[in-house]
């Protein structure tokens, strides 16, 4: 099937989508289905793996191969799949609870190994499917069903976490940003190793408006600090002490996503601790590093290709043997 023949419809499954009205997941699904035809990968070579949570349903709505797994284990399932198959485009869809709480260990190790999977982290700062408990990205003091007196646990910054886990591609985007979201997905798809894309996603039922400072057209124009490689970062400067700041009158800063040292990307990730003010959006880091098993999978396939009964007989007879007539 040639790339040009593919359309959005080729990636739409016949399942009825069942997210709440107004959920940010709809926008992400539409963006993914819309941009996939341009990759030129036939749907049967694409696999969506997901965990549990609202985001987990995503796998059912793509007319590709898909596995709706267990809570937090998406990256581990995808790692096994990638180890078995070098010819697939593997995507993991996860949420902030799934990826950062119950599945935190799998997420960091998939990034550390640089497994060739693209991880879409839908961050709505709340547990949705279990009906409104605090998540690892919920802000301090947040009142939820499980934290009636306000959350006392400090939240993760997913971008900082991914960078600390040696991720080679780390980006942030927004569910409703119709230009930026596909642009980031495109870059993630082009990346050779593991890619983590944090998507700010509004939950209209349990955490409505969490990202209004960025999603809202007028406020967003002020607060979105777009990161573009090689371009000056708007409203970010480096002061006399060498510290990166929002605003200020220090030296302008040029974004460099390809810097091998992750500390610059980390500095950028620390510019905002929550999405209620000026926040960097875009690709924080995009560097090349050996991809887990990339060469190996190919070599192993070749080793296997020639193996037959005579190979097996030789293996079974290796070492000290003796024969009884």
């Amino acid at each position: 099937m040639a790339a040009t023949e593919l359309t959005k419809a080729d990636f739409q499954s016949d399942q009825e989508t069942r997210w709440c009205p107004g959920c940010g997941d709809y926008a992400v699904l539409a963006a993914v289905q819309g941009f996939f035809p341009e990759l030129g990968i036939p749907p049967e070579r694409v696999v969506f793996v997901s965990g549990i949570g609202c985001a987990g349903r995503f796998a059912y709505y793509m007319d590709t191969y898909g596995m709706h797994g267990i809570h937090g284990r998406g990256p581990a399932l995808a790692t096994g799949l990638a180890a078995a198959r070098e010819d697939l485009s593997i995507w993991v869809v996860t949420g902030d609870g799934d990826a950062l709480s119950i599945g935190g260990n799998h997420l960091i190790h998939a990034l550390r190994r640089n497994v060739p999977v693209k991880i879409l982290l839908f961050n709505n700062q709340i547990y949705g499917l279990t009906k409104g408990q605090a998540s690892p990205t919920s802000e301090l003091g947040k009142v939820t069903k499980s934290t009636p007196f306000g959350s006392i646990d400090a939240p993760f910054n997913p971008i900082s976490l991914a960078l600390g886990a040696e991720a080679t591609f780390v980006a942030r985007t927004i569910d409703t940003d119709k230009q930026h979201l596909p642009m980031v997905l495109r870059a993630a798809a082009a990346h050779e190793g593991a890619a983590l894309v944090e998507i700010y996603q509004n939950c209209p039922v349990f955490n409505d408006g969490a990202f209004d400072a960025l999603r809202d057209k007028k406020r967003g124009e002020v607060n979105r600090i777009y990161l573009e490689h090689g371009e000056p970062i708007r409203n970010v400067t480096r002061d006399a002490d060498g510290v990166l700041r929002i605003g200020g009158d220090g030296a302008p800063v040029i974004h460099d996503a390809h810097r091998a040292d992750p500390s610059f990307a980390f500095e950028l990730s620390r510019l905002s601790s929550s999405p209620d003010g000026p926040t960097p959006i875009g690709i924080f880091r995009d560097v090349a590093r050996p991809v887990s098993g990339q060469e190996l999978t190919h070599q192993l396939a070749q080793a296997r290709a020639g193996a037959d009964d005579s190979t097996l007989d030789a293996v079974l007879h290796a070492g000290d043997t003796w024969t009884i007539a």
Binding site: Y65, A76, G80, A83, H106
Partner: peptide, 26 residues
């Protein structure tokens, strides 16, 4: 002999990797 071993981050991942590989036909 084409054997791929993965020392997983934990027992859960080890099982999940085996299952993910099985989905891929391994």
């Amino acid at each position: 002999l084409g054997v791929r071993t993965i020392q997983a981050e934990d027992e859960i991942a080890a099982a999940s990797m085996a299952l993910g590989a099985a989905f891929g036909g391994a």
